[in-house]
Simulated scan of single mutants.
Amino acid sequence: MLTGKQRRFLRSEAHHLKPIFQVGKGGVNENLVKQVADALEARELIKVSILQNCDMDREEVAELISQGSGAHVVQVIGNTIILYKQSVNNKKLELPS
């Protein structure tokens, strides 16, 4: 589980990032979750955008993606989800303790 200090650090790191995935009318499926997990392994910190035509609640989308990929939800703000998962091979971010 992430502490408040770690969440604040990750939010500041994610501020300049652009969303690399979009969740639309199709919602969350296995393929999306697998691609998010692969992206998290490569980058550790990503943003996911939720489109207006998505039928699911944004909190529900965040929960499904985080459970499927094993990631932490850093923040859900507006229609954007920030996800973090420590990489096994490509460790880039050093979280504050």
Score class of each variant (00 low, 15 high):
Val76Phe: 07
Ser66Cys: 03
Asn31Thr: 08
Asp57Gln: 09
Lys18Gly: 01
Gly24Ile: 08
Arg8Lys: 15
Gly24Asp: 07
Glu41Arg: 04
Ile46Gly: 05
Gln86His: 10
Glu13Ala: 13
Ile82His: 03
Val23Ser: 02
Gln22Ser: 12
Val48Asp: 07
Lys91Pro: 02
Arg11Met: 15
Gln75Asp: 15
Asp55Met: 08
Asp38Glu: 11
Pro19Lys: 01
Lys85Thr: 03
Lys5Tyr: 14
Ala37Val: 05
Gln67Glu: 13
Ile77Trp: 14
Lys34Trp: 01
Asn53Gln: 05
Val61Gly: 05
Glu13Tyr: 04
Ile46Gln: 07
Asn53Pro: 04
Tyr84Ile: 00
Tyr84Gln: 09
Arg11Ile: 14
Leu2Met: 11
Val61Ser: 06
Leu64Ile: 09
Glu60Thr: 12
Asn90Glu: 10
Leu2Tyr: 11
Lys85His: 09
Glu13Arg: 09
Ser87Asn: 07
Glu30Tyr: 03
Ile77Pro: 02
Met56Phe: 11
Leu51Thr: 06
Asp55His: 10
Gln6Lys: 14
Arg43Gly: 00
Ser69Pro: 02
Asn90Phe: 13
Glu60Asp: 12
Gly68His: 06
Ser97Ile: 15
Phe21Thr: 00
Ser97Cys: 14
Gln86Leu: 09
Leu2Asn: 13
Leu95Thr: 06
Leu93Cys: 08
Ala14Glu: 12
Gly26Cys: 03
Tyr84Asn: 05
